[in-house]
Every structure is written in C-alpha cells, then in structure tokens.
C-alpha cells in the first residue's frame, strides 16, 4: 500500500512526496522513496512530520497512536487508514484529534463511501417491509468473512434504521432456519477465483427490490481516496473526521 501511495501522490497535480518512512531495521531504509525524488526512506517519523503539510499512514495498527501523537505535536493533519486499532490506542488518537485534523476512514474508496451513504439513506427511507441482505463477493485468498466492507455496509443499514446491528444481524444460514425475522439484516459471502471485489446491498420488498452495488477492480481506488482525504484535511480545524466528512456525505 505504501508504494501505491507514493505513486498516487507523485502523479497527483498539486502534490509532492514530502518523504517516507519504513520500519527501523528494514532493508528499505536508505533507498529512494520514489525514483528520482532524491529522498531516502528513513525510520525517523519526527523528521517526516516536520517536513510535510499532511501525512498518510496506512501501515500497521501498532504505530497508529504514535503517528497521531506526532501529528498533534507538529500540527500536521493525518490520514489514518489502518484497521484493527485497540481501544487504548483509539483513545490516544481521539485525544490527538483535539489538536490536529485526523481523517480515519473505514474504507478510503470514494465509491464505497458513496454506497455507505446510499445504504444508510435507503434504510432510513424504506421500512422493514424491505428486507436488507448484504452479499460480499471476494477473491479466494481473502481469509476472513464477512469482509470489513460487508460489516460496514451492515452498520450503515442499521444506522439508517436506528437499530443496533448486534440485535438484528443474521449470518451463516444453514438447516431449518425458519421464516426470516422481520427487521433482520442478513450477510452472506461468496469466495472464489480472482474476482474483483463486489458488494451488493439488497432491499427486497413486495413486488420490487432495490440493489446498491460497489465493484472494485483496482486497489488504486484506496490510495486515490487517501490522497483526496489528505488534501481535504489540509487547513481543517482539529477533529476526528470520517470519509463521509471528506465527501460531504455526513
């Protein structure tokens, strides 16, 4: 993801790569961040934050809190795209968000975030006469299910209905499952091949259904969204923001 981000920043008009860091001890330290950029990869986060207008961190959850602290200290906006951040670290990130702008997206794809907003809106507008089902289609190498996007779509639907997802979700149907409970939000996963990643939310009513689909065919959609978020965050007041804020969908 880091290399894709460097490429994305380098090809975005109005943006320049301000530097890049790697894990201390990694073989990448000392190499060029980008070909011809004249900047070496360092392990020095402090120098990176001092040199940049905005920083993007898509690395690992264990450094997220440290990145947020550096962002706060230097007053530099941060786009924090790692998932799996623990409660304690998340509290530290929220604290840093009171001193600088931090965008923390669940998913940086512009299209997927548009779909999140559509799902929330449709769930709010349509009553429980419309059964909500979410189908994730993923490539065979993905090791967990439902996907993070499937769960985020389910949360968006539950938020639209103003219910707690834990109370209404249905996963893994098998055997004598009986009639579908009213108001349930179902999730199912198809896995195979090198399929592009496809998520569909069904609102199945009587005599009609609405389907909202996102198809991802390239990982570039995530890096593009990260750079959009970075540009948006520049000059924002301190706060913890989502992609919905970035896109004006909140």
């Amino acid at each position: 993801m880091g290399r894709l981000l460097v490429q994305e920043v380098a090809r975005t008009p109005g943006c320049a790569v301000g530097g890049g860091t790697g894990r201390p001890g990694s073989a990448i330290i000392g190499r060029d961040v980008a070909e011809g950029a004249g900047m070496a990869v360092t392990a020095d986060g402090e120098a990176l934050f001092a040199a940049c207008d905005v920083v993007i961190d898509f690395s690992v959850a264990s450094v997220a809190a440290e990145s947020a602290a550096l962002a706060a200290r230097h007053g530099v906006p941060l786009v924090l795209g790692t998932s799996g951040i623990g409660t304690e670290d998340q509290a530290a990130i929220a604290a840093a968000g009171s001193r600088t702008a931090i965008v923390q997206p669940v998913n940086t794809s512009l299209g997927m975030n548009v779909v999140f907003a559509l799902v929330k809106r449709a769930a709010a507008a349509l009553g429980t006469d419309y059964d909500i089902e979410i189908l994730g289609q993923q490539h065979r190498k993905k090791v967990d299910a439902p996907s993070g996007a499937t769960l985020a779509l389910a949360r968006a639907a539950a938020a639209g209905r103003e219910v707690d997802l834990g109370q209404v979700e249905q996963r893994g149907r098998r055997g004598a499952i009986g009639p579908r409970p009213a108001g349930a939000i179902g999730m199912a996963t198809v896995s195979g091949g090198d399929l592009s990643v496809i998520h569909t939310v069904f609102f199945a009513g009587t005599g009609e259904r609405l389907e909202l689909t996102h198809r991802g065919t390239s990982r570039a959609i995530y890096t593009r969204g990260a750079v959009v978020a970075a540009r948006w965050a520049l000059g924002r007041p301190p706060g913890l923001y989502s992609m919905a804020d970035v896109l004006g969908l909140a």
Partner: peptide, 23 residues
C-alpha cells in the same frame, strides 16, 4: 451505473409486480 477507474457503483431497481405502483 457510475463507472470509474478501478471501481463502479450500480443502483438497480427490479420490479416484479405492478402492485408496487398501487402500494
């Protein structure tokens, strides 16, 4: 269909009965 680079969004409506209009 909103077809972009690397992704697309599709909004679909499928009617199975004219009753949706009366509903």
């Amino acid at each position: 269909i909103f077809a972009g680079a690397g992704e697309r969004i599709e909004i679909a409506h499928k009617a199975s009965s004219r009753a949706i209009y009366t509903l």
